[in-house]
Design a protein around this nucleic acid. Structure first.
Lengths: 268, 268
DNA sequence: GCAAAAGTGTTCCGACTACACCCATGC
DNA sequence: GCATGGGTGTAGTCGGAACACTTTTGC
């Protein structure tokens, strides 16, 4: 991550080398005698799914209600355990498609939380199995996203500021995902994944404002900056919403963006 | 990441929602009937360990020779499998301390590779167990790092351009890690983790040049920019290396940097 | 006409670029 | 002295910040 900027979670530490090279390389051989000490894992995938309600200027997070132990009745992020033969990303897409119907989305891996004790079932007196969570970050179009109500509608969009306390370590995942969302907006064209194909510069600006805060830039300066990038094409069509001058509808020009894909495009 | 920027690995896709909510929340209940389909994992930790040889202007990657099946005799990144009760980060530190003695290092999680078929032992006729790799990114001081020669010295620093083909998917990990390294340099003070406590601006510049390429900036402009940040303190001491005027020794001022920790500091 | 939203232009200023130039040391 | 590397300064330029101003719509 690139990034740009940062993508969190770092550590500075001291290591006093104590050589003991019994299970050196990666991954260790499964016929190794030290195997008895190895942890067995189930691997879960948890998705932070964001969308942006442009009109109300809010970032939304998809939460679901747990209907099973542990943490039954608590809100959490949609997740699942990885099945045999299934890649992590496949699992992430599967969870998504169980909760929501969208035609376009942006998905990328976020972080892996794997310490012991993050799941109550890891208690020593319980099954001797660890649960590891690979979190994914997703961005969907708010107006296109149809939630799939399951059971007694235990699924909802929460505005970022009002997300209830979530089970497990899912609060951290949301926080981490939001940081990634802000960074992504600043140096990548993710915004165009959550806007309609044809959009006004006002909508683009409101999207940025909703995510980055409404003092990140002046509208007219934002305008000139983003147009100077040359990655938007004016369709000539106009969109009128109530009073005010009708706005031009733009489309994101993927070809024009390609050469810039490496690193520039610093908004804000 | 920018991590500024970016930190790779993204995907755009379409999902046609097909509701099947049998194992909804995260992680699924272990008493669930669908459990038979869940994959069992061993979790490995693989470290890309970088250091910078300032004098020769090269970025180095630590590689080890595998001395066990599979892929015996091939170079790869130092890694290990996670043990019972051990956190991912603990495992990463353990591998490091088995290979190298350092007094300071920077370590952060990089990416999790978890598709099926990334390890030959995952063949269906083999143990029905998946191997997942959580990669970590580390930066150590080249001059302080003492390699712990194990067996017939199957451990070596390779200049980034000359790393031999590595086993598993470790080439990808190196590539991904190098991207992270470049991003980190641009917007975070990692550089000071791999420099001696007292260093000259010339050394700092050479470090940046080694990683980012020698046309990233003019020396004198780099100088003024980095000094303007106000995060370096001139100790008054001088360092002389052969001919030329002796250079001032600086120290990184952590307190002065703290308020900037959020995001500025864009070098390059 | 007036309010509301889109779109244009202008001025100021800080930061980055590309140099030229001075300083201190080893030989 | 001269080569080598450290350190300072300056002119040009580009881009962002702030804000005034014009244009086009609905009512």
């Amino acid at each position: 991550m690139p990034e740009q900027r940062d993508d969190g979670s770092a550590a500075i530490a001291s290591v006093a080398g104590s050589a003991s090279a019994e299970d050196s390389a990666s991954p260790a051989n499964s016929t190794n005698a030290a195997n008895s000490a190895l942890a067995d894992f189930k691997v879960g995938v948890d998705n932070v799914i964001f969308s942006v309600d442009i009109d109300r200027g809010r970032v939304l997070v998809l939460s679901v209600m747990r209907d099973d132990e542990p943490a039954i009745g608590q809100w959490c992020l949609p997740g699942t355990l990885v099945r045999q033969g299934e890649s992590l990303e496949d699992a992430a897409y599967r969870v998504l498609s169980e909760k929501i119907r969208v035609s376009n989305l942006y998905l990328e891996q976020l972080y892996t939380f794997g310490g012991p004790d993050r799941d109550p079932r890891e208690a020593p007196d319980s099954y001797n199995e660890r649960y590891l969570s690979v979190s994914y970050f997703a961005l969907v179009r708010y107006d296109e996203a149809q939630l799939i109500a399951e059971g007694v509608s235990g699924i909802a969009w929460y505005p970022l500021a009002g997300v209830p306390p979530l089970a497990f370590d899912h609060d951290r995942i949301v926080e981490y995902g939001y940081r990634r969302l802000r960074n992504k907006l600043e140096y990548s064209p993710v915004a165009f994944e959550v806007l309609p194909d044809r959009f006004t510069l006002g909508e683009l600006f409101q999207l940025y404002t909703a995510v980055l805060g409404d003092n990140f830039s002046d509208y007219s300066n934002f305008r000139t900056r983003v147009l100077r990038l040359g990655i938007l094409r004016d369709t000539g069509e106009k969109a009128s919403r109530g009073a005010g001058r009708p706005a031009s509808l733009y489309v994101f020009d993927r070809e024009a963006f390609a050469p810039l894909a490496d690193r520039p495009m610093v908004f804000i």
